[in-house]
């Protein structure tokens, strides 16, 4: 078995070398496709982290009418806690709200001047954290239309909603366009590798004919070509990982540090994510390389 493997590998390597520039083009296109897939995955991650950050920072606040007393508010709080998708509910009394407001604006004397500690104009509220940003609308709807609806004066839903909607739209756009491009490049890579293998088969047709005559099995003849195709995938993976890392260091890392709104200290790009990318690329590279050469051998290798 090992002998077969060794001989098949050697044969695949020589095919790769013999094809010269064509091999390079195949590797190049494949690298681009893999890079795009990785960029797509990375953007997905960044946008996901941004949405999460937005959600964690500005939760939905539900403001009570002035007439609502504390016990009514606490009753509603426990009702809200029962709703699916609600992670946490915090009751913020009128006094708490004022204290927070003063703390937030402690350096702005002009604002502090107009606020009187005796005439508290801030309403009591419930701060609702949800498990999934996509649920916010539904949850707020349930609360305002439910039994406690008449206690509520307004919610902060509208403001949050806009920001989240924008993020979602941007994310969706980036996802669709990068996926489409990656798909197009994968198809091009498939065709180029297919053609490369076809040429390898053509230049080796004499050798293949003789192999058949001396009793080489189908797969002994076929495997070198398939491995040659997979080799394109492996080399492209290595190349794109190097490029990706350079891109991460020069572009993504400073960008995330400067612009990403994040309350969590955990880094967006973890070692685990890079490992995931490497495996994803390798799998895509191997499958695309292997499938296109298998297809070429099916079509052009009459064994």
């Amino acid at each position: 078995m090992l002998i077969y493997l060794n001989r098949i590998l050697r044969s695949a390597m020589s095919g790769f070398k013999r094809n010269g520039w064509l091999s390079l083009v195949a590797v190049f296109i494949m690298t681009q496709a893999l890079l795009l897939i990785s960029i797509f995955a990375s953007l997905n991650l960044v946008i996901g982290a941004s949405i999460q950050a937005v959600n964690e920072r500005i939760d939905v606040a539900i403001f009570f009418k002035e007439t609502v007393n504390q016990s009514e508010a606490i009753t509603l709080k426990s009702q809200v806690e029962q709703i699916d998708g609600v992670k946490q509910v915090i009751y913020v009394s009128s006094q708490d709200a004022l204290a927070k407001f003063l703390a937030d604006h402690r350096n702005r004397d002009s604002i502090l001047g107009v606020v009187s500690k005796d005439e508290n104009f801030l309403p009591a509220s419930l701060e609702v954290k949800v498990t999934d940003p996509y649920l916010i609308e539904g949850i707020v709807g349930q609360i305002t239309k439910g039994e406690g609806g008449e206690l509520i004066s307004q919610t902060s839903l509208e403001d949050n909603q806009k920001l989240i909607e924008q993020l979602r739209n941007f994310g969706g756009f980036v996802q669709r366009s990068s996926l489409l491009l990656a798909l197009a490049l994968i198809i091009i890579a498939l065709l180029i590798i297919f053609n490369t293998i076809r040429i390898t088969i053509f230049t080796r047709r004499e050798e293949i004919e003789i192999m058949k005559l001396v009793g080489a099995t189908d797969w002994y003849i076929r495997w070198p070509f398939i491995i040659e195709g997979m080799l394109y995938g492996i080399i492209a993976t290595a190349l794109s990982l190097v490029l990706l890392y350079i891109g991460y260091l020069t572009l993504a890392k400073p960008m995330v540090a400067n612009y990403l709104i994040s309350t969590t200290d955990s880094p967006v790009f973890t070692v685990g994510f890079f490992a995931f990318l490497a495996i994803l690329q390798l799998v895509v590279g191997l499958v695309v390389g292997g499938v296109s050469s298998y297809w070429a051998t099916r079509k052009h290798l009459h064994v």
Binding site: K212, L213, G215, A216, D218
Partner: peptide, 10 residues
């Protein structure tokens, strides 16, 4: 069978 032909040829 197709797959035994190589062995036959040997």
């Amino acid at each position: 069978q197709e797959k035994y032909i190589p062995y036959y040829r040997r």
